[in-house]
Amino acid sequence: MNLPKVITDLVNAQNRFDSIAYSNCFSETAVVFDEGKTHKGRSDIQNWIEESNQKYRSVMKPLEYTENGTTSVLSAECSGTFPGSPIILKFHFDIVDDQIQHLKVTE
């Protein structure tokens, strides 16, 4: 599967539980929406993923990727220490200048 470098970097950071590398995939003003909560800015995103990593130990296995301009969707099997694991989630990205501007995670 041919993924943009920033998404490959994001998946690799997630699978290493590296919250700093993960948050560095985002712009300073990026917004993430996950589990009914909004996280704004790289610092907030780093705190969110660090907490999520400690709580769920989730790893991602990319399954499918589609792209339309700056908008793309990655379907990935996510497994970890959460109820219902593994689950397939969709990661909806807006990527500008090789940085994630917006991410929304859905089932």
Rank of each mutant, 00 (worst) to 15 (best):
N2K: 00
N2C: 00
L3A: 07
L3C: 02
L3F: 02
L3H: 05
K5G: 03
V6G: 06
I7E: 09
I7K: 05
I7Y: 06
I7V: 10
T8C: 05
L10V: 02
L10N: 06
V11S: 02
N12P: 04
N12E: 15
N12K: 12
Q14L: 05
Q14Y: 07
N15C: 07
R16D: 09
R16T: 11
F17K: 11
D18Y: 07
S19N: 09
I20Q: 09
I20D: 10
I20V: 15
I20A: 14
S23L: 14
S23F: 12
S23G: 11
S23M: 14
C25S: 07
S27D: 07
T29H: 01
T29G: 04
A30K: 01
A30N: 03
V31D: 00
V31G: 05
V31Q: 02
V32F: 06
F33C: 14
E35A: 15
E35H: 15
G36H: 02
G36M: 03
K37L: 10
K37W: 00
T38N: 03
K40T: 10
K40Q: 08
R42Y: 04
R42P: 03
R42M: 15
S43F: 15
S43A: 15
D44F: 13
D44P: 07
I45E: 02
Q46G: 14
Q46V: 13
Q46R: 14
N47M: 13
N47F: 13
W48Q: 03
W48D: 00
E51Q: 11
E51D: 13
S52Q: 09
N53W: 01
K55G: 08
K55C: 08
Y56C: 15
R57H: 15
S58N: 13
S58E: 12
V59K: 11
K61W: 01
P62N: 14
E64A: 11
Y65G: 04
E67W: 01
E67D: 08
G69P: 01
G69D: 10
T70Q: 13
T70A: 09
T70I: 10
T70F: 09
S72L: 02
V73R: 12
L74W: 03
S75V: 10
S75R: 10
S75L: 12
S75I: 07
S75C: 10
A76E: 03
A76S: 11
E77S: 10
E77C: 08
E77P: 15
E77A: 09
C78D: 07
C78Q: 08
G80A: 05
G80F: 03
T81N: 14
T81Y: 09
F82D: 13
F82C: 14
F82K: 10
P83W: 01
G84E: 02
G84C: 07
S85L: 06
S85G: 11
S85V: 12
S85I: 08
P86E: 00
I87S: 02
I87F: 07
I88S: 04
L89E: 06
L89G: 03
K90S: 13
F91V: 00
H92T: 03
D94A: 05
V96I: 13
D97F: 10
I100S: 03
I100R: 01
I100T: 05
I100H: 02
H102D: 07
H102K: 07
L103T: 02
T106G: 08
T106Q: 08
E107P: 15
